[in-house]
Amino acid sequence: MITYADTDYMRIEFDKSLNAMIYRWKSGNHGMSDEEYKTEMRRCIECIKTYRPLTVIAYMVDSNFSIHPALQDWLNKEIIASLFPNGCRYAILVESADFIARLSLEQVFADKTEERVGSVFVSTLEEAYGYAQKFLGESQ
């Protein structure tokens, strides 16, 4: 596992054995500003451009940040739209325990315009790793 970044809000890693980027939100991100959120997500895209993973795993369990509608649009247009051109084919989301945070992320993926990237919602990191392994096997 290669650590790409470790900030106050997020840890980003690349797992070569799964060809997957994993980003983990840390607890205490509720008061994060829109600009701080965008900075963290742009950092994810930079990692994706560097490693070109097949799969992105978003570990949201400790997140309690809600993505409001305008930020949902930005996420769809700027982040999700950048996945496929940079090699990503799957997004696996380990959902937050916070209902509003979980609902706001589900809304982003319900409205996504990039249909070439599949998405799966799971409840544990182990489940996410299982899917990533399955996707890797199917791609070879």
Rank of each mutant, 00 (worst) to 15 (best):
83 L>K: 10
40 E>H: 13
68 H>V: 09
42 R>L: 13
18 L>K: 12
139 S>T: 13
83 L>V: 04
131 Y>T: 01
138 E>Q: 13
81 A>C: 06
34 D>R: 12
43 R>V: 01
135 F>M: 12
59 Y>E: 12
90 Y>P: 01
6 D>A: 15
123 S>T: 14
49 K>N: 01
103 L>E: 07
95 E>F: 05
91 A>S: 15
21 M>N: 04
120 V>T: 01
121 F>C: 00
74 W>E: 06
18 L>D: 08
33 S>P: 11
17 S>M: 11
114 E>M: 12
106 E>A: 15
140 Q>C: 00
51 Y>E: 09
17 S>Y: 09
113 T>W: 03
11 R>E: 08
103 L>H: 07
62 D>R: 07
98 D>E: 03
119 S>H: 13
8 D>E: 15
79 I>D: 09
58 A>M: 07
34 D>N: 15
109 F>C: 05
115 E>F: 05
27 S>I: 03
73 D>C: 00
32 M>D: 08
107 Q>N: 10
89 R>F: 02
9 Y>D: 11
131 Y>V: 09
4 Y>T: 02
112 K>Q: 12
37 Y>V: 02
77 K>S: 04
32 M>V: 05
117 V>Q: 04
100 I>D: 05
134 K>I: 03
126 E>K: 10
77 K>H: 06
48 I>N: 12
123 S>V: 10
132 A>N: 09
129 Y>C: 04
15 D>P: 02
4 Y>L: 11
26 K>F: 06
81 A>F: 03
16 K>S: 14
63 S>K: 00
111 D>E: 11
67 I>T: 11
38 K>Y: 01
44 C>G: 11
25 W>C: 03
21 M>E: 10
34 D>Y: 06
6 D>W: 05
102 R>Q: 14
136 L>V: 04
121 F>Q: 02
138 E>H: 11
5 A>Q: 10
135 F>Y: 15
55 T>M: 05
